[in-house]
């Protein structure tokens, strides 16, 4: 379903020029997090409530689509302030020196009727590495009768390896893989 993919792209990546409708991220319902696994103990979700996004999309040139999002590392939160300080501290995000975590999209590739993969580059602590995110449409109401009901929601998943970004503390207790989860809700501008 190429149409579905185009619509996905249309709403994921705000059109630069003419388009039927432009969309914005609904910050109240969008959630960005990574999961830290303490081996044999459990998990801690690190959320990023503050971010800036710039999206660019040409429906006729999918290979030219672009997206960039910068997360505010100094606002990373877990729900427990002592842990927040550790996550933001120099062993991990080092937010004082590297305040932004940036993701720049390179391309979007359809993989199913409502699935796609997004390839890009993520920069954490000044180190840039490739990152692939799987995108799935979870809610699709772009044409709802009432404007307030119009929305499209995606779930983006992927994983980064903390060692790739110099976050090497507590190797024996914290797993290297950090699953990324983005629940993205877009509404018309």
């Amino acid at each position: 379903m190429r149409t579905m993919l185009k619509l996905l792209c249309l709403v994921l990546l705000l059109p630069v020029a003419a388009a039927a409708e432009t969309w914005r991220i609904d910050p109240s319902r969008t959630a960005i997090s990574v999961t830290v696994s303490y081996i044999g103990e459990g998990r801690i979700a690190v959320r990023f409530p503050s971010y800036e996004a710039a999206l660019r999309f040409d429906p006729d040139r999918l290979d030219a689509t672009q997206a960039r999002i910068t997360l505010d590392a100094s606002r990373a939160e877990t729900g427990l302030s002592p842990v927040d300080l550790i996550v933001r501290g120099q062993d991990y995000l080092h937010a004082a020196r590297f305040p932004g975590i940036r993701f720049e999209m390179d391309r979007l590739t359809q993989t199913g009727p409502s699935d796609a993969v997004i390839d890009g580059q993520v920069t954490i602590r000044g180190v840039t590495q490739p990152l692939r995110l799987d995108a799935k449409v979870v809610r699709y109401r772009p044409d709802a009768a009432r404007a307030t009901d119009r929305e499209i929601a995606f779930r983006l998943t992927g994983q980064v390896d903390r060692n790739d970004f110099g976050m090497v503390a507590a190797r024996d207790t914290i797993a290297p893989g950090l699953p990324v989860l983005i629940d993205l809700v877009l509404v018309p501008k």
């Binding site: 459990g42 998990r43 801690i44 979700a45 877990t78 427990l80």
Partner: peptide
């Protein structure tokens, strides 16, 4: 049995 360590901590 909780996997969420923050909830477990509290």
């Amino acid at each position: 049995g909780l996997d969420d360590l923050i909830a477990k901590f509290e």
